[in-house]
Nucleic acid binder design. Structure first.
Lengths: 223, 223
DNA sequence: TTGCAATTCAAACAGTTGTATGAAACTATT
DNA sequence: AATAGTTTCATACAACTGTTTGAATTGCAA
């Protein structure tokens, strides 16, 4: 391959446009215009529009996943194969949050693209996300090692809730800012990470006292 | 208006098709075929496709919101204007979770539609969701009354995390089932509600207020 | 240079989409 | 029964979509 110029111009233009305007109303013609490239080039270089989107998303998400695993591995090696649950959770949600939050005006195109991807969820991206399970299993394993007395079910729920808080905060960051009238500072990424990790840790470690949950008694009959 | 037959046939058919196949690949022609109705009827009765989608979503979401407020009001009246935080949170996430989870084969069309709406997020629905803030403020107010010593920031973060866990669990219920190899039982809706409420309560009460009730265990299956 | 493959290009294709139109069929009131 | 207003219908429209085509151009090796 000669210079890759056209190919990467398309990738850059597509990422920028999708980040700015969403997947919904960006056509191939918009992309090739932005990239100063012929319309047919997309199909020549990528095969189809969906494959272009998939390549964009895969590139960014394997970067995030690699960062996650790097942090996880570092923590586990330092702890002799067993890392504290807080550190594991930080490795899980930190890279994503750091990648997507932070001062708006200095958010990278990549970050804004990933936010879009998490909001709009088009078919090619959904397909890729479904293959993310193996990756999550590695974290479930590490969490099980950190909390050996905890049941698998609790581990999975804790993992689920940690991801929930991180992703939802990214997706709805604008609404949270508006709802709180700016009191919740989403630009302070490390504070957000700390909050998510703290709550997820509580969820995973609290009440290890064999207590049969009396939860159901409350309020089930508020009608 | 005469009989409303066409109008409601369109609404029913559209909700069913969107629930089954998503917004992405359901056309007006699909809908009118399913409803045994003429193509032009959609624009005649609803003005446009987007207004049809909006009406569907508004109907369902004001129903949920009404149920939420009903539970909240009942709890606050019973407690003399101040309800326990668990009950407030239950009123917040309970109706949504009950509406969207539960045994797949007995999920209502409405439930499946709302799940789609939470996954795919098309423009007309996003516009409506953005107007949901006033509704959430009522819950923020109730939470502030329940936890007067807590800062506004913490309240908003707790609210955000509670919604995060509920919505993410709905959105990714399939993935959680697969990840946990079925160990997480998403059909036991009341257990899911209890888990979300429990974690959100911990998020809101742990830390600064040592005098508060001891954190409860993750709602383990008590049977 | 010549030859050959890779790339670019303009143009067209084949479909689908939501929407508009104007006539026809109803419904209910007079 | 005649009328006016509403609703249904077949059909056309106009625009946009991703993709394909086949010829031109380019870059590089022999």
């Amino acid at each position: 391959m000669a210079s890759d110029h056209t190919r990467s111009a398309i990738l850059a233009a597509a990422e920028r446009l999708y980040a700015d305007r969403g997947f919904g109303d960006v056509t191939l013609r918009d992309i090739v215009a932005e990239a100063n490239v012929n319309l047919a080039a997309v199909n020549y270089h990528f095969g189809s529009k969906d494959e272009l989107i998939a390549e964009l998303f895969v590139t960014r998400s394997i970067a995030t996943n690699r960062e996650r695993l790097r942090e996880l591995k570092a923590a586990e090696e330092q702890g002799g194969g067993r890392a504290p649950i807080e550190v594991i959770l930080r490795a899980l949600v930190g890279p994503t949050l750091r990648g997507c939050l932070g001062p708006q005006n200095q958010r990278s195109t990549a970050a804004r693209f990933m936010i879009r991807a998490s909001i709009e969820s088009v078919p090619p991206i959904r397909r890729i996300k479904n293959r993310e399970i193996d990756h999550l299993r590695k974290f479930a394993g590490a969490m099980r090692r950190a909390l050996p007395e905890r049941s698998d079910v609790d581990i999975y729920w804790g993992l689920n809730f940690a991801l929930a808080m991180a992703h939802h905060t990214i997706r709805e960051s604008e609404r949270l800012t508006k709802l709180s009238e700016g009191k919740c500072d989403l630009d302070d990424v490390e504070d957000v990470v700390a909050r998510v990790v703290s709550v997820a840790t509580m969820a995973l470690t609290a009440g290890r006292t064999e207590s049969k949950a009396p939860v159901r008694a409350l309020a089930r009959d508020a009608r």
